[in-house]
Design a protein around this nucleic acid. Structure first.
Lengths: 328, 328
DNA sequence: ATGAAAGCGCTAACAA
DNA sequence: TTGTTAGCGCTTTCAT
């Protein structure tokens, strides 16, 4: 692999001149510039990023810390973050935590300033004392504990309220919720929105209709739904805290011959691509994922260099109404 | 951030000794070791990976080049590759190509030996002359053109044959195929398996029952299925070259009130998690993705240092029979 | 406008 | 066993 020195020797100039050309600096004598460019071409020179970054004191990477890529929401988000990072010449390093405290801690621990310039976090279990980051960071979605770190995401309370209001507008009165979780900040907020919408419509809050979920996978949604259907008075609607839970819930309903939406209306959260093609298709809260990714990366880019500084960005969402609440 | 020198000064030893301790080399006098370890602890020293790798001539990264993370198969695979890479102290850099030739070319171009130690590729459009890689690489799945690069994947012909044989064993005789593609190597092989299974059962090969798909998204499967249902003699079964196409096909069938599996049996390929929870659940070829990820990473690890060398690894697969072919 | 040389933090010869 | 030192490839003063 050709180095700057090789190119310099071939062009008959100093490394400085070559470096100037490569980086588009200052004025290089046209004659030298031409010679250098020819040498660059001839050697197929490619800068050694490691060396450059060592010198510049930056790494050229940002970390994206998330539970798992096999969860569609995070996979879609990761794709968008990679695209957004590219615009700032950043490469993205993905770390999976599997939503465990130890996984999240070890991901954070590996985030030395030597490895990444900044980090995007989707924590689920971290505690306040864990947030001693050595690089600028931004949290996606809310977190249970209040930490002095920037945040990008939608208004979870408002979004959940919109989802439940929609169910109420359909005339449903026994509306269940799946996905309560003691640790997760977003779960608490979504529950809050759920309760607010019920209160607003003078519907009673029935604790037995709120089912917790330790994980937010399809299997958890199915299990929760089965429990709800076993109730003496089963719900006529259910608000699931993510689409995966909703997909699982619909599956469980189908297995019990409960019809969606006539017997049971279902709303999800995340608007996964999968939900557009399920049968029935799933009504869901659709956060603007592209906006989340772009704003998070931009925010980080601004923060690198200018020090920490907390900033909260609210991104838009919409309610996508589909067959799981309104038959076609 | 503390450097080796800082630690050395604090411990009253040379950087070499500290380096030795950090890297677990040779014998360090117990007394010194203790002092160094205390200093390490006190300073919170973390090695600068960039500098270390610059010196060692490696980068600590491998690239994973794939079409897009929003495709569940690649998202699941990426998660497994990240996990496997961790065992070799590799970080994974994901590059999305969106399946285009230009996207794949620019991804390869950015793969200087300075950036990554090796690469895992899932190419779809690359041509033979593009494979002038400067680092060890392995291709996941087959590729249309024959290149001297290692390969890890299942036997696509055998897998497709198994899928179609299953449909034949159900008594289906007009079996369609969705996903033919002029460029993709895997598409050609899956088509080959499809034809072989038909021939084996003395079923005619009907060209109009083979529908191409430019992309392998759900929408493409739906469009293809609609075309098939418009045929004068529609199929009684369909083999889709991936699960996404199959999900789209089932959706299109449902919209036309065609019942799965009674009117139409459907088989997919990839065994996405999504397919277990769809209604009806989807019969699918299940490649052992964890094995693919692990073998690919291991192979690369062996190849780094020992030079190129081509090696083909065949990983196992199975057929998961579900409701889309056998009603419960 | 260009060259010489220092140095980013680390590892590895080579000495001691 | 430990210290000294060169150098990985690059950028950047500081001269010229």
């Amino acid at each position: 692999m050709a180095t700057l020195k090789d190119v310099a020797r071939l062009a008959g100039v100093s490394v400085k001149t070559v470096s100037n050309v490569v980086n588009g600096y200052s004025f290089v004598k046209p004659d030298n510039r031409r010679r250098v460019e020819e040498a660059l071409e001839a050697t197929g020179y490619r800068p050694n990023l490691g060396a450059r970054n060592l010198r510049r004191g930056r790494t050229g990477f940002i970390a994206l810390v998330l539970p798992e890529l096999s969860i569609p929401y995070f996979a879609e988000l990761a794709g968008l973050v990679i695209a957004a990072a590219q615009e700032h010449e950043w490469n993205v390093l993905i770390e999976q935590t599997f939503g465990t405290l130890s996984g999240e801690r070890s991901a954070l621990a590996s985030l030395g300033p030597h490895l990444v310039d900044a980090a995007i976090l989707s924590p689920e279990a971290l505690e306040v004392e864990d947030f001693q980051l050595s690089v600028p960071a931004v949290i996606l979605g809310e977190h249970a504990v209040d930490v002095p770190i920037s945040r990008v995401g939608i208004d979870n309370v408002a979004a959940s309220k919109a989802a439940v209001r929609h169910l109420i507008s359909l005339g449903r009165t026994r509306i269940a919720a799946i996905g309560a979780h003691p640790q997760r900040g977003t779960a608490a907020l979504r529950l809050e929105g759920y309760r607010a919408a019920l209160a607003e419509a003078d519907l009673p809050f029935v604790p037995s209709l709120v089912v917790p979920a330790l994980n937010y996978h399809r299997a958890d949604g199915a299990a929760a739904m089965k429990a709800l259907l076993d109730l003496r008075e089963p719900p006529d609607a259910v608000f699931c805290f993510n689409d995966l839970l909703a997909i699982g819930a619909m599956r469980a309903a189908a297995e019990r011959f409960v019809r969606v939406p006539s017997d049971l209306a279902v709303v999800g959260f995340d608007n996964n691509e999968e939900s557009v093609y399920s049968s029935p298709s799933l009504t869901s809260i659709a956060p603007d994922k592209a906006a989340i990714a772009r704003r998070a990366v931009d925010l980080l880019h601004r923060q690198v260099g200018s020090g920490p500084g907390r900033e909260d960005v609210e991104t838009p969402f919409s309610l996508q109404v589909r067959e799981s609440t309104v038959a076609r």
